[in-house]
Simulated assay, not measured.
Amino acid sequence: MPDDHPTVRAAFQGLSPAEIGTILTGTTTARLAAGEPLFLQGDPADRFFLLKEGWLKVTQVTADGQKLIVRIVHPGEFFGFAPALQRDLYPGTCEAIVDSEALVWPRRRWQAVLGAAPSVTLSIVQAIGRKLDEAHDRLRELSTEEAARRVARLVLRLRAKAGEDALETDEGIELPYPLTRQDIADMSGNTLHTVSRIMAAWESQGVLGRGRRKVVIADARALQDIAGDED
């Protein structure tokens, strides 16, 4: 196999060597230090990607200058879907939260990758669908839900997506990558002041653990109650 990284093996599990060879033809690897961008909003959309390790965040700056974090990319996820959406430019900036590594295809390989195996096409379509679902959820929450509930729902979604990568600590379940309160504000559509007030209160109440640039869920049941989740 041309790339024997475990995340790549898992992404293409069940495919024949010939199918994998076709899919990986022309790929390179991008290695990023924490805080380093992979691409910038408005750059030519000349590549698409699979995250091999690490975590990335995708941000957008709106017409009025507001910065939003629209997605956290986890290992094993395809991203950089501009070719699928017939975009010539990336609509957002993608940068590493921690040291990260991504598999890179040139845009000209898009059709060949999609045609190589139905399972790959399905994975990419599902990833696009999840991205759209998250956008719809966010729009609904911004228009109908108060600040604390939006923050609680966001933290629970991040915990669910982290899966087995989430860390068990003495204080609770810790997300496996650093997030500032500004990051939480950018993702939940709140101001930094509002998020700081909410999270400080939750830390005092034992809902969250205390930690600089860390999100630790100390009482998941209480957080679910705030979010309005039944399970």
Rank of each mutant, 00 (worst) to 15 (best):
G115P: 11
G189H: 08
Q182T: 14
W202P: 01
R210Y: 12
T191N: 07
E168K: 14
V151A: 09
A148Y: 02
A185I: 05
R213W: 05
A201S: 10
V216D: 03
L192I: 13
T180W: 04
V207L: 06
V207C: 02
A102W: 06
A200K: 15
L132I: 14
H193I: 08
D165Y: 12
T169N: 09
V195W: 01
L114C: 04
E146Y: 12
V215N: 04
P118L: 08
E171Y: 07
D170M: 10
I173H: 05
P178E: 00
S196W: 03
K131G: 15
P106G: 10
V120D: 00
T144M: 11
V120Q: 00
I128N: 08
G163R: 06
Q111M: 12
T144N: 09
E203Y: 09
A200R: 14
P118K: 00
L208W: 00
I184N: 00
A116V: 10
A117L: 07
V195T: 13
L154S: 05
E146S: 14
K161N: 12
A127D: 06
V151N: 03
V155K: 04
R109T: 07
G206C: 07
V113A: 02
I184T: 05
V98R: 05
T169G: 11
I217Y: 03
E174G: 05
N190W: 04
V216K: 02
T144I: 05
I124G: 11
R150T: 03
V155M: 15
E134M: 06
E95P: 03
R213D: 13
R181W: 13
L103H: 02
